[in-house]
Design a protein around this nucleic acid. Structure first.
Lengths: 170, 170
DNA sequence: CGATGTTCGTTGCAAACGAAACAATCACGC
DNA sequence: GCGTGATTGTTTCGTTTGCAACGAACATCG
């Protein structure tokens, strides 16, 4: 079997190239990392987001959230405040500068994304959207079933320290 | 716009989760990194591959190839020899141990991939394959056009040292 | 042949990452 | 109220990654 014909490989490579195309837009011109970009994306619109809902809604784990928040705060794009109800949690909100930067970046990113997706025949575009949605659901089903099972399976003899990752996000 | 509904985000997240499912198979049980996995994939079957054709056929740049090759050689999974025709290039070939390891890993990976993809309704699966192929072509067209154009665009005023990345892989 | 420029693979270095340890805060049982 | 455990966010440590510089091997032109 040639690797080019192995579908998981093609999916990974294609998605990566596409993602890099967009990352070069918000990264190159606006200086945002992928985590920072997603972070601002979440904050934009909603006035303030607690760290809890942020972890749940993105594919960022708590370490990535912490680091991205530190950098964004340093750049003056977001503010971090401590919640009164639970003083462990943080409440993130976007600043005016952050919102302006994000709007600018978003317009450029969407333009690039539309340029690529618009290059596809409409039928293929619809197929892509449909296929990704279905894959998303399928991988969620299998991952839920295989998450504990295969992890233990893989750790059969030499890795007793591995615990199941049930409580983790991502 | 909610980030969950932004298609590029959904594509990136879904592809990443799927890729990680497979990476946990060849990584967890067989101790291969993604680059090493792809490297062995390319070498398997073909008796020997020159470094030149290897860079062209994978999405690995020369640094990744060099490092993956060093680790694989250290593990005894491949051999590195110097070509007679051009003594700068290397000729990689897989060892018996490497081939055995790869075959075992491949069977497990394919099983996991089939488990996920087989979970999808056949129509959706067909749509996914079709959509990814179309996206692959579309992004290739746009990247070729925007590669130089937008890079210069982004580097408008502050990065005169940027040269076009035409000769680079990835 | 010798000088210059190009290509290939490797290495150094700084930034980023993942996993585990950590401190701070909360929740609960007694 | 107070110890014990759980949860949240941060930090630390070792590794990996991307980028640029480098040396070695070739090519080209005089």
């Amino acid at each position: 079997m040639q690797i080019e014909e192995f579908f998981p490989y093609k999916l990974a490579v294609t998605a990566d190239v596409f993602s890099r195309q967009l990352a070069s837009v918000y990264g190159g011109r606006h200086g945002l990392s992928r985590e920072e970009w997603r972070f601002l994306f979440l904050l934009e619109g909603s006035g303030g987001v607690s760290s809890l809902s942020l972890s749940q809604r993105t594919s960022l784990d708590k370490v990535q959230v912490s680091r991205a928040a530190a950098r964004l705060e340093e750049k003056g794009l977001i503010t971090r405040t401590v919640l009164g109800s639970d003083r462990r949690q943080r409440n993130y909100s976007i600043t005016a500068r952050g919102e302006a930067l994000f709007r600018s970046a978003f317009a450029a990113v969407e333009a690039r994304a539309s340029a690529i997706l618009g290059e596809m025949p409409p039928d293929d575009h619809a197929a892509l959207v449909r296929g990704i949605a279905a894959l998303d659901q399928a991988v969620a089903r299998v991952a839920a079933a295989a998450g504990a099972g295969d992890a233990n399976d893989a750790a059969a003899a030499d890795d007793p320290a591995r615990q199941d990752a049930a409580g983790s996000n991502r």
